[in-house]
Nucleic acid binder design. Sequence first.
DNA 1: TTTATTTTTTGATTTAGGTCAATTCTGCTC
DNA 2: GAGCAGAATTGACCTAAATCAAAAAATAAA
Lengths: 193, 193
Amino acid sequence: MPLATALLKIAPLSEKCQVAIRAVSQSLIYKSGRYLLVPNQISDKLYYIEAGLVRAFYDTDNGREVSNWFDQEDGWVCSVQSFLTQTPANEYIQLLEVSQLIAVSYQDLLRLLNQYPELNFHFRLLSEYHLVVYDKRLQLLREQDALKRYQGFLELYPRLACRLQVKHVAQFLNLAPATLSRIRKKFQEDTSK
Amino acid sequence: MPLATALLKIAPLSEKCQVAIRAVSQSLIYKSGRYLLVPNQISDKLYYIEAGLVRAFYDTDNGREVSNWFDQEDGWVCSVQSFLTQTPANEYIQLLEVSQLIAVSYQDLLRLLNQYPELNFHFRLLSEYHLVVYDKRLQLLREQDALKRYQGFLELYPRLACRLQVKHVAQFLNLAPATLSRIRKKFQEDTSK
DNA sequence: TTTATTTTTTGATTTAGGTCAATTCTGCTC
DNA sequence: GAGCAGAATTGACCTAAATCAAAAAATAAA
């Protein structure tokens, strides 16, 4: 499925624009573990995930990893701060599974957005959609105790939850892996009775 | 300053569109404490802050307040989830100071965005800007200890910090007011030597 | 299969931050 | 200026979650 098809799900798009998009988009298949971005690089490509699983994370000064987000099929990937401001990133983006991606460069995208004003409609909606997602994540992280954060995570990302390692979920929720392990045990006991 | 002027800071705008915006925007002055939104209402207006201070918050089940965000001069205000999806809000939006606002209704804005495609460019950039802000907030909330969260807050919002009550900042950072009070004391000691 | 490696779980202990109540401080109103 | 109400600070105590280390389980490799 080409990139234009993903955009057509948002709104109609002129034939001309579709062709232009196809011309600049690049189909890729990478294996698990591959980095799409490392810190200090500028995130200069926007990826659409056809299939696969991606996570973003960074290292803290005391040498532990923090996971910022995950995304899977039908998700859009870039380092938000770095891509949108074209400044050096502070996070890694890494594949957690073999993934099939479509890439567009920042320059090409910018050019298309100027050349085809109609495209601004699609990317406005895409940004707005992600704003809602981010808003929910902020609310999730402000849940007072660990159990509520985990429950909220399961509600918000039921499809992701079963695909991720426990330690990655823990990093995302700002919990020690050991803590999340205990929470999950308690949670299973609670839900099974 | 009318709303169109705020948008002109982002990019040029046709005279026609400027007039159309002026026609639907409403200038308001409200006093401190006034609610712009309460839970279960649908956030159906987008406000631009000419002057003043606004916060969003919600009540938890155990009866405490959590502050989601603050905004001041030159900020745009709505309940992100509620406004963008036109579903009932789960937060309050309240003025913390006398404020001068400009309001546009969701319906009018939607109409303008369809009638004047050029406007999509402005609101795409506006959304993208807020995505970056949200991304920074998420990173802030994932700082491991309370001191780092407070320091990060001061860096991110130096102008806000001195204008807000300590308890509101505490709610924003997911800290008990007493804890933040102790942190600030320690922080002042650290920075004064 | 056996070995090696990583992840998850579990236990024992420590600690950062929460809670609750008392006190001080600040800003208002009359 | 006196009196009041809300906010901030401080102290004493408690609890949820972090830490560290060791076992168990799951994955990958040989």
